[in-house]
Simulated scan of single mutants.
Amino acid sequence: MDLIAEVIPNQWVTGIGAGIISSIVAYLIAQRYLSWGGNKEYLRKVDTANKDVIYALRSIISDEFKFNVTPEMLSSIISANSVKHGVDQKDMYSPDQFIDALVKEVMDSNFLSVNTKMSYCTSIISLKIPLTPELEELSTIAPSIKLSQQSQLIKLSSLLR
């Protein structure tokens, strides 16, 4: 007991002990801060993947007067870009959000006439699948199922009735 009473007031022991404690606290704070950076990097990857899909779809528009992309092709493009960039597909835009972004891209262009813009937008918006009441009910029950799979499930359920 006398040894502890003599060691604690020693300036060397106190200084080294305080240095060790402050190092541990600094390490914990740095680890927390650096873990936030990893999330930012993932969000950058998702943003890049979204931009790549929009760029791919935009090049299809400029090549043809009609926008001839099926919902399955759009899903494939989204899936391929999610794999390419190493992100989860559910973190990317939905197909409807990509269609909306594409409409915005067309409307922002200064190089197209109003009639051409309207024609492009009409053909792009036709890609959106209108939700029937059955499809809307199924999308709320199982939101992780893709829209094309949901429509197939509805067809199967109507056959079973």
Rank of each mutant, 00 (worst) to 15 (best):
T48N: 13
Q149W: 10
S79F: 06
W12C: 14
M107A: 12
S151L: 09
S94K: 05
S126G: 13
I99P: 00
K128M: 06
K128G: 03
I21C: 05
E72S: 10
K66Q: 14
Q31T: 15
L43P: 04
E72K: 08
G19N: 07
N39R: 15
A30Q: 11
W36C: 13
D100L: 07
K128E: 04
Q31V: 15
D2H: 12
S157I: 12
E137R: 09
V46L: 03
W12S: 14
E136W: 10
K45T: 06
Y120N: 01
E134C: 06
I141K: 10
Y27F: 13
D96W: 04
E72T: 13
S82F: 01
M92C: 02
I21V: 10
T140F: 14
E134S: 07
Q149G: 11
I16G: 06
S151D: 06
I24T: 06
S144T: 14
D108R: 05
R44K: 13
I145P: 02
F111H: 07
A101V: 08
S157V: 12
M92I: 05
F65C: 14
D100N: 11
L135R: 02
I8P: 01
E105I: 10
V25L: 07
V103M: 03
N68P: 02
K117G: 00
Y27G: 09
V7S: 06
A80L: 07
D63H: 15
D2Y: 11
I145G: 06
V69W: 00
S113P: 00
N110E: 09
S35V: 10
S157N: 13
Q97Y: 07
I4N: 05
I54M: 03
K117S: 01
L135V: 07
Q89A: 13
P9V: 05
G37K: 13
Y93D: 07
S35C: 09
D63K: 15
Y55H: 13
V106Y: 00
A5F: 13
Y42V: 10
K45M: 07
I4K: 08
A49R: 00
E134M: 05
S22W: 07
S139P: 01
I8T: 06
